[in-house]
Amino acid sequence: MGIIKALKLGFNYIEYSEDDREKKVTRALKGVDLDVKEGEFIAVLGHNGCGKSTLAKHINALLTPSEGTMWVDEMNTADGKNLWNIRQRAGMVFQNPDNQIVASVVEEDVGFGPENLGVPTEEIWQRVDDSLKKTGMTAYRLHSPNKLSGGQKQRVAIAGVMAMKPKCIVLDEPTAMLDPNGRKEVIEAVRELNRKEGVTIILITHYMEEVVLADRVLVMDDGVVVMQGTPKEIFSQVEKLTELRLDVPQITILAYELRKAGLPLPEVVLSREELVEEILHVD
């Protein structure tokens, strides 16, 4: 079994009207199957309201399934006694950089998770040092989070999760509120952790450039997974992506257009270098 596995996962949001008489049920997830291997880098795409965030919250047991089952590191998330183990194993980074930093000094925030886990003081310091180094934030350890850029704040949040020694990190649109430079630094940090530390990554995003780096891409729509495959496989379906309200990187569209016009280019081109080489080698 993979590190994260979902079987026919369903989830309903239930809203009560003011007088408690009417009940409105919104089905956010409608039977999601998922199997993530340890060390994989998964990107999840989908327009707003497609159920991505709801899925993410299941991985951290912030929500538990209405139907079906979810396992994290072979623990059933519906079982209350696994709760804290699951949250330690699968950390979470949220969209708004300001609203997830608890402490007023960077290093104290990174130490917050281990403190909650009851890690002995000396080891907390080791973990904090280590996590700050891995995310490149050591130079800022005594800064106030309020004085950092958005990208730096997100790296602090990632360091805070790393200090809990997770096997998996779920990032729910971590770059949505950042500028292009901030986006780059966050994605680079995430990629490093995936490659060097072997941390499993589940990255939810709207930015197609970030998806290109993933091992596997899931596309969600209306509470189900509608497409699944390598970035190349996904981006070869330009029309379908547009139908799902998503974007395709400009480079890929250009290659697609050129191919439609008759140039013998490969089915999918994801990088600028690749496209340039292919065009130059047309004869």
Partner: peptide, 17 residues
């Protein structure tokens, strides 16, 4: 939510950095 995700469950069993 973020605090819960980081295993915060009140003061009991907490250590200090």
């Amino acid at each position: 939510l973020a605090m819960e995700a980081r295993c915060y469950q009140g003061g009991e069993g907490r250590t200090l950095m």
